[in-house]
Design a protein around this nucleic acid. Structure first.
Length: 425
RNA sequence: GGAGAGGUGGCCGAGUGGUUGAAGGCGCAGCACUGGAAAUGCUGUAUAGGGGCAACUUUAUCGAGGGUUCGAAUCCCUCUCUCUCCGCCA
């Protein structure tokens, strides 16, 4: 959420900043509402002040004179009644205005960072670096083919259970998923992250807090009888973990790592990646999350990104780092680095982690603050996948495939998986 | 699901219609005492909005929202969350 006062005082600057996302934003309507609200606020506080003085006077009069039914007193009470009536009129107007302003501001995305490359869509994203040697050979198999031939998972049976875009992992597939989760959690906790295992169901307020609502209600699954949704990413419960808190500055930065299942409706992606592990309604993810002092968030952004990269390095998976352009940024993010892993079967890099600096955008929506120089100040929040498990498995299968149909697994997984290869059983 | 209790400042906790933003304590900060510290004493210590260069001033806020009243932390209604007991349950 953007700062209401900033919108009121700098409407043109707001429009400029937002419009760098590639679409023109006109906020003159919100701007007018905020001015109107200020007028009403002033009006109300004058009336309240008068009415308060009068009430004190009446109180004093009553305690002075025993007779609390004298005509003078009744006159004063009548006067007070008029104030009450006027005030409630203005308050009604204010209520309506507040709601309008809040609703509109909640639909505005974060300001892109001035450091983010300017651009319209993903074609303007900028590659920062690559790591590892992409495997380019003829006759590579897709992770889907490998998975089916090694009996690691089954999509068709999963469609019977649920529908398409769900997966059941089988035998070594399930074991590998589990190994990857444990491997990643161990890596990150050794690196100073506190592990959390949050609820998978989250309320609407939490989704608003991290920016998924009100605008993107279409992208999450909602429970019919409760105000609960299936969490699309651990970013949601992790943000909400400190909702409405004033965090002690000596605890900063707070760094969490959380494993969670993630649920997404994937509306509008019909026909894309319909098979395999790449795009599912339910997938597992290990998420990194920081709450930090505003002055530290640029550094923190680099760190969270390199923490996510370290997993790919350990797994020896070739990847590249991409600086997301202004037009392709997520709603809550001011700057995002995507990490994309090499998938030999499609001869391209695919997103496996997205590391974002949301500045105070989520903290303001969720009211998460700290004391800095005696002033309550919104924290900065950062999130990054560390990593998406299903896509990691896909990358391991494709990059480790051998001519004989087996898969060589990264050595780092041996303590977790028990061996360094997958064969037909 | 049934019954009951309760949500007050960073924390604990008093307060059942009147000048209460709210006693007291803890915590925290400053000062005094000390060689230094502890202990002690004194002073200060909520958030948000408005006005002012500032000192300051003003309004709101006692889970949320309505209502009664000249006046509500206190009375009424609705919602919500937490806790305890019973039932059910991995």
């Amino acid at each position: 959420m953007l700062d209401q006062k900033f919108i009121r005082e700098n409407p043109t600057s707001v429009e400029q900043k937002l419009s760098s996302r590639g679409k023109a934003y006109n906020i003159s309507h919100i701007h007018k509402l905020t001015l109107k609200k200020k007028e009403i606020d002033i009006e109300i506080s004058i009336l309240q002040s008068e009415s308060k003085k009068l009430s004190k006077l009446i109180g004093q009069e009553i305690s002075k004179s025993q007779n609390n039914n004298n005509p003078e007193l009744n006159n004063l009470k009548k006067k007070g009644n008029k104030y009450r009536f006027k005030i409630s009129e203005f308050e009604e107007k204010k209520r309506i205005l507040d709601k309008q302003i809040h609703d509109e501001i909640c639909n505005l995305p974060n300001f892109p960072s001035k450091d983010a490359p300017f651009g319209k869509d993903e074609s303007n994203n900028v590659q920062i670096k690559t790591w590892g040697e992409p495997l380019i050979t003829e006759n590579v198999k897709s992770h889907l083919e490998i998975g089916e031939s090694l009996n690691l998972f089954d999509s068709e049976k999963s469609a019977k259970i649920s529908k398409s875009r769900f997966i059941t992992l089988i035998g070594n597939g399930a074991r590998l998923e589990r190994a990857l989760i444990n491997f990643m959690l161990d890596m990150h906790t050794k690196n100073g992250y506190i592990e959390l295992m949050p609820p998978a169901l989250v309320n609407s307020d939490s989704l608003k807090g991290s920016g998924q609502l009100p605008k993107f209600s279409n992208e999450s699954f909602k429970c019919a009888n409760d105000d609960l949704w299936l969490s699309p990413t651990a970013e949601v419960p992790l943000t909400a973990f400190h909702k409405n808190e004033i965090v002690d500055p000596k605890h900063l930065p707070i760094k969490y790592v959380a494993y969670s299942p993630c649920f997404r409706r994937e509306a509008g992606s019909y026909g894309k990646d319909t098979k395999g592990l790449i795009r599912l309604h339910q997938f597992n993810k290990v998420e990194l999350y920081w709450f930090c002092d505003p002055s530290q968030s640029l550094e923190a952004h680099k760190k969270i990104t390199s923490d996510a990269e370290s997993i790919l390095k350990k797994l020896n998976l070739p990847y590249r780092l991409v600086d997301i352009c202004t037009g392709d940024l997520g709603f809550s993010s001011s700057r995002t680095f995507d990490i994309e892993v090499w998938l030999p079967s499609s001869k391209c890099y695919r997103e496996i982690s997205s590391c974002s600096n949301c500045l105070d955008f989520q903290a303001r929506r969720s009211s998460i603050r700290t004391k800095i120089d005696k002033k309550n100040t919104y924290l900065h929040t950062l999130n990054g996948s560390g990593l998406a498990i299903g896509r990691t498995m896909a990358a391991i299968l494709e990059n480790g495939q051998q001519a004989d149909g087996s898969v060589k697994l990264p050595d780092a997984l041996v303590p977790y998986f028990g061996s360094n290869f997958l064969k037909t059983t």
